[in-house]
Amino acid sequence: MAKTTNINVTSNEANNNTLKVAFATDDDNTVDRSFSKAKKFIVYDISKDKCTIKKIIEIDTSNLPEGEKIKYIISSLKGVNIIYCKNIIGGDAAKVISSGITPVKVKYIDSIEELLSQFTYMINNNPPPWIRKIMNIELEDVRLDRWKSE
């Protein structure tokens, strides 16, 4: 039978306006695993102000039939908004997306610290609408203001 170990990090702080972002990793420092082969995901809560580790999910799917592995991994990541991985095949990506998680494939073996820095910068400067919606960030209609001045 498959096994999942969740190591939760507890905090007294409220988790409002945060994204849950998971990174597929073996070494805890880089995104170095493909989605279907990952044995560990580090999940961060990311807000405009900071990034904190929420939990570490260790997954063992070695005893599952091939068709059940992806379902099991997805269920283990319940509540995660975005997953960074080295690679994800089309069919698996479709299943991940239909579960409400957005997969992001990295081009190189990227540092988790650098990805967190880039993500925080994006949130604080010009997050796309779908991230604003998840984080309950007020949408400013910059385009309408621009048109008013013309």
Rank of each mutant, 00 (worst) to 15 (best):
V104R: 10
I101T: 02
I88W: 04
S99D: 13
G91K: 07
S76I: 10
I89E: 12
I101G: 03
S76V: 06
T102V: 11
S76Y: 09
L77F: 06
T102D: 05
S99R: 05
A94Y: 12
C85P: 08
G79L: 08
G90R: 11
V80C: 00
T102K: 04
S98K: 09
S76D: 12
Y84Q: 05
K78V: 07
N81W: 08
I83G: 03
C85Y: 08
K78W: 03
C85W: 09
N81C: 04
P103S: 02
N81A: 07
G91E: 14
G100D: 15
I89L: 07
V104M: 15
A93S: 15
S75E: 07
P103G: 06
N87A: 15
Y84F: 11
V96G: 07
I89F: 09
D92S: 14
S99M: 01
S76N: 11
L77I: 11
K86E: 10
I88M: 05
T102C: 03
G91C: 12
S76C: 14
I97N: 05
C85A: 13
G79A: 05
K95C: 11
V96T: 09
I83W: 00
G79S: 06
K86Q: 13
D92V: 13
A93T: 03
A93Y: 10
I101Q: 02
C85H: 08
I82F: 13
A94P: 01
G100P: 12
S99E: 07
V80M: 00
G79H: 10
V96H: 06
G90N: 11
P103N: 06
A94R: 13
I88V: 14
I82G: 11
I89Y: 11
G100H: 07
S75T: 14
I101Y: 02
T102S: 14
S99K: 01
I89H: 07
N87G: 14
V104W: 00
I82P: 00
K86N: 10
A93H: 15
I88T: 06
I89T: 12
S76M: 09
S98V: 00
V104Q: 13
K86S: 06
G79I: 08
P103Q: 05
I88E: 07
A94S: 09
I88Q: 01
A94D: 15
V104N: 05
V96F: 08
K86W: 03
N87Q: 04
G90I: 10
K78T: 13
I82C: 07
P103C: 07
I83Y: 00
V80L: 01
Y84E: 10
I82T: 12
I101N: 01
G79M: 05
D92K: 05
G91A: 10
L77Q: 12
S98G: 01
G79V: 11
I88A: 03
